[in-house]
């Protein structure tokens, strides 16, 4: 198992180097001069320009700059933001928990509804229930989520006044960040009101971000259930006289889950992509919104560092999914 892990990890190295090259060239290809941009309307003297240029390392050759960037990366140093002058790593880390919390809630929403829906559709195959579930999930799969978010805000926030429009928690509470998870931090602070408030603020964004994964999970669960239901061992289980419930829950679902777990893991890229419009709509202070701001402000080091870190997260999660697949499906190990 450990060897399997090492091999997989080694395979990631070239991809990761590719990612750093892409991120590095990205910001050098962006139009506009970062130093002039930093100077803003006031303009800048020629001496100060040269001074800043050498300070930021822009006067050295691209190869040297790239290896400096790699060296910094290995030390966890991604440079400083041009806008806030704070280290990019800190900026990223202070926002990442917000995105992670939102993504986990979205994924929980998707699994809690998608999995049973897929099982039901498979069991009632060809019936009205099956068609309804599949129709809804195809609609969810086709959803422009930025519009879906606006629609839900119009209905539940503006018209009914049930849910808040934007942010992570009511302005009445101030919670000292420990983990960066608003729900956990408010529990640590022992403030129930704040905890409920943070949950309240999570509802709509999680639904919006979870909609497409929900549809994907429901579809995948249904099709792998149907596949397993046709297997010989399921027929044997039925022939032994086991109850229908037991056949479905124990013999079928457990085996169908193997491919479902993989699909759930592969939603990470989708969640991080969906986080961009979702966080924009709900003013959610996570990395999606931060990246959009960094790109539009031409904050080069932030864009570069953010791209590398996000790609790194996606790659690591995909690796873990691969490993989990090996663990739960002994047939493919080695």
């Amino acid at each position: 198992m450990f060897k399997f892990f090492l091999v997989k990890l080694a395979q990631l190295v070239p991809t990761f180097i590719g990612v750093t090259i892409v991120a590095f060239s990205f910001i050098r290809l962006l139009p506009g001069d970062p130093i002039l941009l930093m100077a803003g309307e006031r303009g800048i003297s020629a001496e100060r320009y040269a001074e800043l240029k050498s300070q930021l390392g822009f006067d050295r050759s691209l190869i040297v700059q790239y290896f400096d960037f790699l060296k910094g990366l290995l030390h966890g140093d991604l440079g400083n933001s041009l806008v806030t002058h704070a280290p990019v790593m800190d900026e990223f880390m202070s926002r990442f928990p917000a995105t992670l919390e939102l993504s986990l809630f979205a994924l929980a929403f998707a699994v809690i509804i998608g999995l049973p829906a897929g099982v039901l559709a498979a069991v009632k195959r060809g019936k009205t229930l099956d068609h309804t579930v599949m129709g809804i999930s195809l609609t969810g799969y086709s959803m422009p989520i930025f519009w879906w978010g606006l629609l839900l805000i119009m209905l539940f926030s503006s018209t009914l006044g049930w849910t808040p429009v934007s942010g992570r928690i009511s302005y009445m509470y101030f919670i000292e960040p420990v983990t960066g998870f608003m729900t956990i931090d408010s529990l640590i602070a022992g403030d129930w009101g704040a905890f409920l408030s943070s949950l309240h603020y999570l509802i709509l964004p999680s639904i919006v971000l979870g909609t497409i994964p929900l549809a994907v999970i429901a579809r995948q669960t249904r099709s792998s259930m149907l596949e397993v239901l046709g297997e010989d061992y399921v027929r044997t289980a039925r022939a032994k006289g086991l109850s229908n419930f037991r056949v479905i829950m124990v013999h079928t679902l457990r085996n169908a889950l193997i491919s479902v777990v993989t699909v759930i893991g592969l939603q990470v890229g989708l969640l991080l992509a969906g986080a961009i419009p979702t966080e924009t709509i709900f003013s959610w202070p996570g990395i999606g919104k931060w990246m959009i701001d960094a790109i539009s402000r031409r904050d080069y080091p932030s864009v570069q560092g953010g791209l590398v870190l996000i790609a790194f997260i996606v790659m690591i999660v995909n690796l873990l999914v691969d490993l989990a697949y090996g663990v739960i499906n002994p047939r493919i190990r080695h």
């Binding site: 991809t15 990761f16 590719g18 990612v19 892409v22 990205f26 290809l29 962006l30 139009p31 890229g269 989708l270 991080l272 992509a273 969906g274 961009i276 419009p277 990246m291 959009i292 790109i295 539009s296 864009v303 791209l307 996000i310 790609a311 996606v314 790659m315």
Partner: peptide, 14 residues
């Protein structure tokens, strides 16, 4: 390795 929309946004910015 990049989330699709993020990569597209970056390319558009370039």
């Amino acid at each position: 390795a990049f989330p699709s929309l993020l990569l597209a946004l970056g390319l558009v910015a370039i």
